[in-house]
Design a protein around this nucleic acid. Structure first.
Lengths: 199, 199, 199, 199
DNA sequence: AATGAATGAGACTTCATTCAT
DNA sequence: CATGAATGAAGTCTCATTCAT
């Protein structure tokens, strides 16, 4: 009824609703500025219910990380595994990260801003998974460098750091109501990336 | 004397000490995870003293923003105003942002992560000043595009967003004890920027 | 158990206990001189419990106002609605206000002294309700004036202000251990009121 | 300079200015809601200066009480001592209390609301002086009762309590911009008092 | 006569979490 | 599965007063 009163239809199972509401609120105000009470109110359940499904507030955050990581890794695999020339594969992967980040903007904002709020063990786990992701991306760059398609005088790590910096930063300035679509931003950023690697 | 008793040498006037300690702690743990009590303890004063000089915790943050903005703006002016070719000016400015950000790493980390924690009015003020800074930077890019030195098919805004994303991201991965010096990172990132703008 | 440990028998539900203790303390020392800690200690609960039921310290005060207003309004209605001659109705109402104020002396003291400590919106609400109460009382006076039972050369507003000044003032000097009972004071004050209205 | 900046001309000696500013602020917000810092800011001096002249915040309050008491007592003496019939003397005194209270409305508000904020010893002193004042007033009523000018079936104490309740209450409702002048209120209240004493 | 930096105690409030039901 | 009252620690901020200068 709380949910109804707030105009939120209680759709789907409780844990989904909690993660979904938490994502929205964390994206909007930052982990530390969101009270567990707000989350459960907006999800139309009580605190007891939340602690039934999640061990703690940062468990919710962990779950969000899990979802984003699974999705990003899975998508990246597809581009890496394709048979296209390396430049095309890198370009496609780059565009996809951006388009996907914007399509799941709340998740992305949380992902790029809230790592510190995970507890040490979960944080290590997420960082490790994230590193693996970056390494796959870097492998593409290195492949291009080895085969002479990309210039090799900039370390591939730095190229990846450079590019993902821009991706992280999206949450700061991009707006759906702005002049550019996600695809356009993806194209431009991929252009910049590829151009910067031209021999 | 309190400071002495705690083994902390009282260096410089109290307000300086407070800002300096706050910078360090905010950089390390994030604004919301730092208690005012920690700040004043480390600075060797009492809470009363802090509130004598700063109206609130976020006033301390505001002061940090003020310092960084003043410094960055002032440095950028110098490069913009130089008589060198536009590509050289842009390169120099780019390198300088990175080197300076690393030289003042704590300030930079706070700067790039804590904007949301400022109160609305101060946040507006800081954002406005930051926008002016980005516009100066963008003007360099546009000048190069107009004169044909840079390719013009990527909007200058996006180029700036792309580059500063990378700068913001530094705090996430750069370490003084890593293999690269600040100058090296600056060079590489400036290379990537300039390369991505080659016609 | 905390309550037991402190030797205070936990009587009734927590919110009641809090309001009751707060009433006593506010009456005794004034709103600003009572710490929330004192209230919860005396009620045998923790601060968290208090803030579970009341949004703020002044919410407690608001609740006290609500109770007094409800009681006074309800009682006045009865006298106003009676079929007796207007002088009798006014007299009965006057006596009743005084007797009731003394019977609930703590509530009355708080009521007559702490309006300023309510937050603006609640204060407006209480003042409005209080005004309606006074208007009902004034209507009695006006009825008597219209029908020639009371002299009409003093504005009814002033008569009401005059009389309720005395009621408010009770808290300053009346004492249960003094020579006069509540009924005696009520009779005398009603005498003075009625006498002052004789044509 | 602070004073100038705030548009307050620093007129007269510092102690006067402090008492005057304190009176205004205490009347407006109540003793506990006024910070010493506000007082000294508005008076255009520093805290050191205030503590040079007054031993504590409530010393300022004590000084206000002293002034009001001296003034009221002195004025009452004049009416008491006059050769007029007792009813005229009582009436004149009653009107005067009201007119004077309104003429010095801030002092009066503080006087009638802040007794509890004095420290015990000062409070005893003020209460004693106040009692003497009321006794003088009561003596007038008793004189009238003894001589048959006033009815004697209401104890004179109660008459005084009744009347001064109304006076105290003035601060709650009277406004300079309202329809009634101080003199008109004084007349009406004195009418009510005298009427209520008619045999 | 006056300054103003500094104190230190205490104020109100928030909040993640627990637990009896 | 779920409730929601209650905890208790910690958080930010206020303020009368002191004291070296």
């Amino acid at each position: 009824m709380a949910a109804r009163a707030l105009g939120v239809e209680p759709l789907g199972p409780v844990p989904e609703r909690l993660v979904s509401v938490a994502t929205k609120l964390f994206a909007e105000k930052g982990f530390d500025r969101v009270a567990v009470q707000e989350i459960v109110d907006l999800a139309g359940v009580t605190k007891g219910a939340m602690y039934h499904y999640f061990g703690s507030k940062d468990d919710l955050l962990h779950e969000i990380y899990g979802r984003v990581l699974r999705m990003q890794t899975e998508r990246l695999e597809r581009f890496v595994a394709s048979a296209a020339p390396v430049a095309d594969r890198l370009r496609a992967a780059a565009v996809d990260v951006i388009v996907t980040s914007i399509a799941n903007f709340d998740e992305a904002k949380v992902f790029y801003r809230s790592m510190d709020h995970l507890r040490p063990d979960k944080q290590r786990e997420v960082r490790a998974e994230r590193r693996r992701y970056h390494e796959r991306f870097r492998a593409l760059v290195e492949e291009g460098q080895r085969t002479g398609v990309f210039r090799a005088d900039t370390p591939a790590d730095l190229v990846v750091a450079y590019f993902f910096g821009s991706v992280h930063h999206l949450g700061t300035w991009y707006s759906d109501s702005g002049p550019l679509s996600a695809e356009q931003v993806g194209d431009h950023f991929a252009d910049l990336l590829l151009a910067s690697l031209r021999p």
